[in-house]
């Protein structure tokens, strides 16, 4: 049976170990991003007005579009994993390719948004656009959190693209192994983090 490695005696045992391993990694990622979320919360608590004024300056249209893109990519990734379990190679490839394209689309929109933020002088430091106390701190968190998220997404897009390529060339044991599931779990975590980043960074200071 291909795909079975030492020291595992069955594929089920190997799958269980891989799944537990990636979840321990994801839990560590949760705490890693959690530190940023905690820092954000403390400063939002200290400077509520500055955060509202600064949050209103982010681009809600691009932010919402990117959230929709990531949610969609999680759905296509899930299809790839489920199809993999059924041995439906063509559907796995479709799922992986769509996921990777959507991830790349997110990054293109984010780059457009970053360029706009830079034009609007929303980069903390000399010449920062907003006078409110705490607004600069908000944008420090905005840049750090979205940039670290983008790094994770870049790794995700590269990993999913590589997986699709290797699967297409028949160079990976995806039948019966946890290969696709582990890849999918990492992708969904990127989505989970963004689900919380979106309301915290884009939905402040809107409406009444």
């Amino acid at each position: 049976m291909s795909g079975l490695n030492e020291p595992f005696q069955t594929l089920a045992r190997q799958r269980g170990a891989a799944e537990l391993g990636i979840w321990i990694f994801l839990a560590s990622e949760l705490v890693f991003f959690g530190g940023l979320f905690t820092g954000y919360s403390v400063y939002r608590f200290l400077y509520p007005d500055g955060f509202l004024a600064a949050g209103a300056e982010t681009n809600l249209i691009i932010g919402t579009a990117n959230t929709a893109i990531l949610l969609t990519s999680s759905a296509t990734m899930a299809v790839a994993v489920w199809a993999g379990r059924e041995g439906l190679r063509r559907h796995v490839l479709w799922g992986l390719c769509l996921t990777s394209l959507l991830g790349a689309g997110f990054m293109v929109l984010k780059a457009v948004e970053y360029a706009e933020d830079i034009r609007k002088s929303l980069v903390p430091g000399a010449g920062f656009a907003l006078p409110e106390r705490g607004a600069e701190i908000f944008f420090s968190f905005y840049w750090i959190m979205t940039a670290i998220h983008a790094v994770h997404l870049t790794i995700g897009v590269a990993a999913v693209s590589l997986a699709a390529w290797r699967l297409w060339r028949g160079r990976v044991d995806w039948r019966g192994t946890a290969f696709l599931h582990v890849l999918g779990l990492y992708w969904h975590l990127i989505d989970l983090i963004w689900i919380f980043l979106f309301p915290l960074l884009y939905l402040l200071g809107r409406g009444g």
Partner: peptide
């Protein structure tokens, strides 16, 4: 499985 769920819950607990 139980191990996976514990790993996820521990992440949430620390947070």
């Amino acid at each position: 499985g139980a191990g996976t769920r514990i790993a996820a819950l521990v992440g949430l607990l620390w947070l």
